[in-house]
Deep mutational scan, measured.
Amino acid sequence: LNLKQAKEEAIKELVDAGIAEKYIKLIANAKTVEGVWTLKDEILTFTV
């Protein structure tokens, strides 16, 4: 999975969960695949 694909998957998951745009922007700015997954997990843990 490359960075672009990771971001697309994570953003789709966050949108489906009804997460606010400000958190989705954090994913869009992530620099690594690991960073994308870590941010996604943290956002889902603390906002859902």
Results as ranks from 00 to 15, higher is better:
1 L>I: 12
2 N>E: 13
2 N>D: 13
3 L>E: 01
3 L>I: 07
3 L>N: 01
4 K>Q: 14
4 K>W: 10
4 K>R: 12
4 K>P: 05
6 A>M: 04
6 A>K: 03
7 K>D: 00
8 E>K: 09
8 E>M: 11
9 E>W: 11
9 E>P: 00
9 E>H: 12
9 E>C: 13
10 A>R: 01
10 A>F: 02
11 I>S: 04
12 K>Y: 03
12 K>N: 06
12 K>A: 08
14 L>R: 00
15 V>S: 09
15 V>C: 12
17 A>Q: 07
18 G>D: 04
18 G>W: 03
19 I>C: 10
19 I>G: 02
20 A>M: 06
20 A>S: 12
20 A>D: 14
20 A>I: 06
20 A>F: 04
20 A>C: 10
21 E>R: 09
21 E>S: 08
21 E>D: 10
21 E>C: 12
22 K>T: 08
22 K>D: 08
23 Y>W: 13
23 Y>P: 00
23 Y>G: 02
24 I>R: 05
25 K>S: 11
25 K>N: 09
26 L>S: 04
26 L>A: 06
27 I>R: 00
27 I>V: 08
27 I>W: 00
28 A>G: 08
28 A>W: 14
28 A>I: 12
28 A>D: 11
28 A>S: 10
28 A>M: 15
29 N>P: 02
30 A>E: 06
31 K>G: 06
32 T>E: 03
32 T>H: 03
33 V>R: 03
33 V>C: 05
34 E>R: 05
35 G>M: 15
35 G>H: 13
35 G>N: 10
35 G>F: 07
35 G>Q: 15
35 G>P: 00
36 V>E: 01
36 V>M: 03
36 V>T: 03
36 V>R: 00
36 V>H: 02
36 V>A: 02
37 W>Y: 10
37 W>R: 13
37 W>K: 15
38 T>E: 15
38 T>F: 14
38 T>M: 14
38 T>K: 15
38 T>R: 15
39 L>Q: 04
40 K>V: 15
40 K>T: 07
41 D>Y: 12
41 D>I: 13
41 D>E: 13
42 E>C: 15
42 E>P: 00
43 I>N: 00
44 L>S: 03
44 L>I: 07
44 L>M: 07
45 T>I: 11
45 T>L: 13
45 T>D: 11
45 T>N: 15
45 T>Q: 15
45 T>C: 14
46 F>M: 15
46 F>Y: 12
46 F>Q: 12
47 T>H: 15
48 V>Q: 14
48 V>K: 15
